[in-house]
């Protein structure tokens, strides 16, 4: 059975090196600070063996946007959830792209940019994935009226 780490389990893993990076500890996730988030992901991938990025997705929380990462370690058979809050408000949400850590984020981050309008800094090919280039707006935002 895959062990799903609780918020305090994740905190224990991160606290030795990234105590200041932790922004909030939830029941089953940890929210890390947007700045220098790649250091945390590199540490989780290389030192903690979280080699499979299960999924990247985003949620429109009305007051702000957040990006949600589901990580899995094939070797340890464990999974964890890391979240990043993209700024304090809805204006220009952006996070660092994790493509340099996990290639698997390539198409998923493009999809998030397309549908939710979150920019990923450092993505090799940041353009719309599903909708056409001249499309106005980002449909998964709560203020998008279809």
């Amino acid at each position: 059975m895959t062990r799903v780490l609780t918020g305090s389990d994740i905190e224990n893993i991160l606290s030795s090196k990234f105590k200041n990076q932790i922004e909030f500890i939830g029941d089953d996730y940890v929210q890390v600070i947007n700045k220098d988030s790649l250091d945390v992901f590199n540490y989780l991938k290389i030192d903690q063996n979280y080699d499979l990025l299960s999924s990247v997705t985003s949620v429109d929380r009305i007051s702000h946007f957040e990006v949600v990462y589901h990580l899995t370690s094939l070797q340890k058979n464990e999974s964890m959830v890391i979240k990043i809050k993209c700024g304090a408000d809805r204006i220009d949400p952006n996070v660092k792209s994790v493509v340099s850590v996990w290639r698997g984020a390539e198409l998923q981050e493009r999809e998030i940019y397309d549908l939710m309008g979150i920019m990923f800094e450092g993505h090799p090919n940041m353009k719309r994935l599903l909708l056409w280039e001249n499309f106005e707006g980002h449909p998964l935002r709560k203020d998008f009226v279809s």
Binding site: T2, D51, L52, S55, W102, R103, G104, A105
Partner: peptide, 21 residues
């Protein structure tokens, strides 16, 4: 490469990774 690119399912197992949920 397959694990790094989040590839799963029969494609991952064809590359020799024993990962079946």
């Amino acid at each position: 490469d397959a694990i790094n690119a989040s590839i799963t399912g029969p494609m991952l197992r064809a590359s020799g990774v024993d990962w079946d949920l």
